[in-house]
Design a protein around this nucleic acid. Structure first.
Lengths: 203, 203
DNA sequence: CGCAATATTAACCAAATGGTTAAACCAAGG
DNA sequence: CCTTGGTTTAACCATTTGGTTAATATTGCG
C-alpha cells in the first residue's frame, strides 16, 4: 500500500492533459486517446484513474468552473466602493481570461450541452453576489450612480470582459487582427472596459 | 428527368433538420442519424443530397452565418446618426437572437473549432464596417461623443447583445431565473442596452 | 528476500458512427 | 406500357472510439 506521490503525480498529469484537450476541443470532440497521448501514458491508465470519459470530464470541468467563478466572486467580495470594485473586477477577470483564453467558451459550451448535470459545479461563492447587489444599491442610495438593476449591471460587466475571448476568431477576422494585435486589444480593454462601464452608470 | 419541387423540398427539409440538430448539439456531437430522424428520412438520403457530414455542416453553417452577419452589417448600414444607429442595431440584433437564441454560441463554437476553414463563411457585408467607423469618427468630430476606438465600441455592442444568449444557462442559474424570467430580462435589455452604450460614449 | 498492493501496459472487444451499395420506387416522355 | 432518370430505402461495411481484461512491472514492507 501507500501512494508516495506518483499516483497523485500521474493523476495530476492526466488532469492537466485532459484540461488541455477538453478545453481546446470540447467534451464531444475530445478523444480519450488524445488525452492519453498528451499525458504520455496508456489509454487504459486513464480509465484506471478516472473510470470513464464522463468522470474525467467532470474532474476537468469542476476545476475550470471553480477557477472561473472563484475569480468572479472573489474580486467582487473585497471592494470598498462600487467604482473601485468594478475596476478591480474587470482587471482580475481579464487577467484570468488572458491566462486561460479558452475558458469562457468552454464553460458556456458545456453548460449549454448539459445544463442540468453541470449546474452543481457552478454553485460557488454565490453569496458574494448579494454583496454586489448591496454595493450597487448603496451607491445608488448615495446618489453616485443612476438607477440600474444590479443583475443587469453584472451581466454587462461579464459580457464586456468575456465576449472578446468567446468571439475571438470572429473578431480577429472582422477587424483583420493577428495574434499580436488581438493581445494588444485585450491589454487595452483591461483598462478601458471598467471606465466604459463606470461612465454609463455614473449619476 | 425533372425535379418538380420534391428535390428542393427534401433538400430544404434536410437543411432545416440539420440546422436544428447541429445548432443544438454542435458539429462534433451531432449525429447523422439524428438529422435523418429529424427530417423523417433515411440516413442514406442525407448522403445523396449532401455527400458527407462536413458538407452538410457547411450548408447549415453558411446559412446561419449569413443570417447573423447580414443582420449585423445590415442594420449598421442604414443609420442617419450614431445614436439612432446604435439603437436600431441593438434592437435588430436582439430580435435576431430572440428568434434564434442558439446562433451566437453555435457560431462561436464552430469558428473556434475550425477558424481557417470557416473564415470564408463570415466574409459578408464587411464593407459596412467602414461605414460604421466613419459614423463614429463623424460623431466624434461633431463633439457628440468622447474619443473611442470604433472597433472597441463595436465589440462592446456585440458583447452586450450576444453574451446573455451565449451564457444563458449560467445566467439563469446565477440569478435564479426560469425561462419566463429570462425572456423578460431579454425584452428589457432590448431597450436598456442601447442607452447603456450611449451613456458611456456621450461627450 | 519475497509478498502484497498498486501502477502500467498491450491486446482486445462491442457499440456507435460515418459512409457505401445495390436494389426498389416513381414520375415523365416516347 | 415500358424505358429512363432521378429519388428513396434496407442492408451492409470499415473505422473510430470508449471501455475492458489479463498479464507485467514497480514499489513498499515484514
Amino acid at each position: 500500500m501507500s501512494r508516495p506521490e506518483k499516483e497523485a503525480g500521474t493523476e495530476q498529469r492526466i488532469l492537466a492533459a485532459a484540461r488541455t484537450v477538453f478545453t481546446r476541443k470540447g467534451m464531444a470532440a475530445a478523444r480519450m486517446q488524445e488525452v492519453a497521448d498528451e499525458a504520455g501514458i496508456n489509454k487504459a491508465l486513464l480509465h484506471y484513474y478516472f473510470r470513464d470519459k464522463q468522470r474525467l470530464f467532470e474532474g476537468v470541468f469542476e476545476g475550470s468552473a471553480h477557477k472561473q467563478f472563484d475569480c468572479i466572486w472573489g474580486c467582487l467580495k473585497e471592494s470598498p466602493g462600487l467604482f473601485d470594485g468594478i475596476r478591480s473586477f474587470v482587471a482580475a477577470y481579464m487577467d484570468r481570461m488572458i491566462e486561460d483564453p479558452m475558458l469562457p467558451l468552454f464553460i458556456a459550451q458545456e453548460m449549454n450541452r448539459d445544463p442540468e448535470g453541470l449546474r452543481p459545479f457552478i454553485d460557488r461563492g454565490m453569496k458574494s453576489r448579494q454583496r454586489f447587489v448591496k454595493l450597487v444599491e448603496d451607491a445608488h442610495a448615495r446618489g453616485e450612480i443612476i438607477d440600474i438593476d444590479p443583475r443587469e449591471l453584472l451581466v454587462n460587466m461579464m459580457a464586456l470582459c468575456a465576449h472578446p475571448f468567446i468571439a475571438r476568431p470572429m473578431l480577429m477576422h472582422i477587424h483583420g487582427m493577428n495574434d499580436e494585435a488581438f493581445r494588444r486589444m485585450i491589454i487595452k480593454r483591461r483598462e478601458s472596459v471598467a471606465e466604459f462601464i463606470i461612465r454609463s452608470i455614473r449619476a
